[in-house]
């Protein structure tokens, strides 16, 4: 069992009113921002179920937007985010939907710009979150660790190349999970790392053949 930290209990310092619907929303936004990694021209937020129903009353919409703009959970600007200069630089819209196959507190971020990307995630309770899909590939990313996310063609040797590069740099891999559509087809992988990777390692990994997407997603600080 994972040992619980004091700071699971007496933090985070956050803007209210709800850990799952406000702080969780910001954190999902922050993670998605890092996964997309580019400056989006347009963002569509699709809120599902409880997020759709009670989201506006809890400032979930504000939290999600704050997160994708890189504003952290304890920033009091979140309350008036829609009036903020940064918010007016991007084109965004919210959709409120029902889908009982999805988690009660669930969201899709659809980023458009030089690239299009859909990132989905759930707010799983007490401010903890989980990114569950990137462009429909299942992933599992919580922001607890610095992580490396890859989408690649499933073939022999790719993973050992990647882990080889990481290990020669002396970075420990804490956990790893892979998913694939079928043998030989596309697959995704999330690696949890004990420390952050530097730019040159990521560039090395990007140069491996048959890897389509490489993202280093930093650990959430609060």
């Amino acid at each position: 069992m994972k040992q619980s930290s004091l700071f699971d209990i007496i933090s985070p310092i956050m803007v209210g009113p709800s850990s799952s619907h406000t702080a969780g929303a910001v954190r999902l936004g922050l993670l998605s921002r890092n996964i997309y990694g580019l400056t989006p021209k347009k963002i569509t937020f699709k809120l599902y179920n409880s997020y759709a129903l009670t989201g506006r009353g809890h400032g979930t919409d504000k939290g999600l937007l704050a997160g994708v703009l890189g504003i952290p959970v304890d920033d009091t600007r979140i309350k008036n985010i829609f009036d903020l200069h940064e918010a007016n630089e991007v084109n965004y819209q919210f959709e409120f939907l029902e889908d009982f196959n999805r988690h009660p507190n669930s969201v899709d971020f659809i980023f458009e710009g030089t690239q299009k990307m859909t990132v989905s995630g759930d707010s799983v309770g007490a401010g903890n979150v989980r990114i569950t899909n990137i462009n429909n590939f299942p992933v599992d990313l919580t922001g607890e660790y610095n992580s490396l996310v890859l989408i690649y063609k499933d073939r022999l040797g790719i993973l050992s190349k990647v882990s080889g590069i990481i290990q020669t740099e002396g970075v420990n891999i804490a956990a790893m999970n892979c998913e694939r559509i079928a043998k030989g087809e596309d697959a995704s992988m999330c690696m949890s790392l004990d420390c952050a990777l530097n730019y040159s390692i990521i560039e090395k990994i990007k140069r491996i053949d048959d890897i389509y997407l490489v993202r280093h997603v930093g650990k959430l600080e609060s």
């Binding site: 699971d8 209990i9 007496i10 933090s11 985070p12 310092i13 956050m14 803007v15 209210g16 009113p17 709800s18 850990s19 406000t22 702080a23 400032g59 504000k62 304890d74 009091t76 979140i78 309350k79 007490a126 401010g127």
Partner: peptide
């Protein structure tokens, strides 16, 4: 009112 608080243990 979306002010800054400390979840302890939760926001509510």
């Amino acid at each position: 009112r979306m002010g800054k608080i400390v979840a302890c243990p939760t926001a509510g």
